[in-house]
Design a protein around this nucleic acid. Structure first.
Lengths: 244, 244
DNA sequence: GTATGACTGAACTAATCCGTTTAGTTCAGT
DNA sequence: ACTGAACTAAACGGATTAGTTCAGTCATAC
């Protein structure tokens, strides 16, 4: 895996054929990265079936022959993109959160991070792409799952287990609990998947995630931190957003 | 070029020209229905882009010309299917549950019904189809949303409100609470969407839904039914299934 | 100063597939 | 038996597109 990523000024559209390789050695990898980037953009914008190799080549500022020199075909391009993008998403989630001592703040931070990533427009777009193709190419769906969602949920599970061991949570089935939390956080993802214009705002996402953590804590929190009398922390802290 | 098959004696069924119409009047609608059914099967099996009109016609035991006599084209076929299938799913959920008095049993019944429908293989297949196309055809996604998920969640919301009015639940934002419950119930749907072989068993689905209701009740249930001392119902009632 | 090898651009092949058309067939009602 | 509407089978037009080929261009290595 020699991913190049290279987000900087990659000669977006140089008007006329100034072959800019210049780098000599790195030129090859640069073209390769440009092709991947272009393919991702085109796939995300038009879907796999409606994406043409000509457009990908044009977008990458590269001849079609070069595309086929570096990739065996459209399929390989797709798998390459799924692997790299899903991995990037997984990494984004995997970044360590500060070792908050308060379980509520820790969980809220975790949930908000998940929510932000899950509702990122690019994440949604990639997911749509993968879902669309996973029927005809089971390996694609599997690969995405194993590079993104599965590690992410595993990460959350281990975080929960840590809190359980510390006595901050009381959970029988940690795996399922993680799934429940993620389920709540991503409940509206289906909407965005079906109609991109319904993608919620950043504030809405974090507000929802925060409220979800409260439900989670009501079920699994040990009473240690919240006053004995009220079953829920009284929610005086914030208004728990009203409209959706 | 394609499909030479009809030369001599294959003729699936109907050995010799008994063009089934017979009914005269109803024949038209019958063919129409057959085409829709065939199109749904083909779309679900191969996806929209990979489905050919020839195959749909063949599957419906109808000539391609007839397909075009009844539908303007592939697109109309798709919208027709999405509308009818999504509506069918919505109805399935909308069926009244018995007026259970115990909120726990009522919620569990509701959640299980939702879970069963949401994890039905056909539901998942249709969803995948719609998600795949919703990018290029926003109307498709919107239409599906309005025929299926949105009414379903509205139904759940009103059920929750009923329980709130009765004093069985304490919920500030009923809309969001409904979303939370559904979110938990359908948490694993993403997996099935990405890899059909991961579709959970019926038992697993109901077990998960039941456990999810417990979390929901821990957060929103009024103490009326559960002892005051413990924040959670002590879980002695049932083992809260171990395996995922 | 030339050999090397990546890259280009453009034409080309071959296949697919939507939607149309045509020529002929079946069937209900009269 | 005749008519007209619906249907069928088959071929076709036209458009798109994946993937190939190749002569020529350029930068660098030697």
């Amino acid at each position: 895996m020699e991913r190049r990523q290279e987000t900087s000024g990659n000669a977006h559209h140089q008007i006329r054929g100034p072959r800019v390789p210049a780098g000599g050695a790195g030129a090859r990898d640069k073209k390769r990265a440009a092709i991947i980037e272009a393919a991702q953009a085109v796939f995300l914008e038009r879907g796999f079936a409606n994406a043409t190799m000509d457009l990908i080549a044009t977008t990458a500022d590269v001849s079609k022959a070069t595309v086929y020199a570096k990739f065996s075909g459209k399929d390989e391009l797709l798998t390459e993109i799924v692997a790299s993008a899903a991995g990037r998403i997984g990494q984004e989630i995997d970044r360590h959160t500060g070792p908050e001592e308060d379980p509520r703040t820790r969980l809220t931070a975790l949930a908000c991070r998940y929510a932000q990533v899950l509702f990122d427009a690019q994440t949604i777009g990639l997911l749509r792409l993968v879902v669309a193709e996973s029927h005809n190419r089971p390996d694609i769906g599997r690969r995405y799952l194993e590079a993104g969602p599965l590690p992410a949920i595993a990460h959350l599970t281990s975080a929960l287990r840590e809190l359980v061991d510390r006595g901050d949570l009381a959970i029988d089935d940690v795996d399922h609990a993680a799934l429940q939390l993620v389920g709540m956080v991503q409940a509206k993802r289906l909407y965005s998947l079906l109609d991109p214009s319904l993608l919620p705002s950043e504030e809405e996402v974090t507000a929802t995630a925060t409220a979800d953590v409260e439900v989670f804590l009501a079920a699994y929190g040990t009473g240690d931190r919240t006053p004995h009398g009220s079953r829920r922390p009284a929610t005086g802290r914030e208004k728990r957003q009203k409209r959706q």
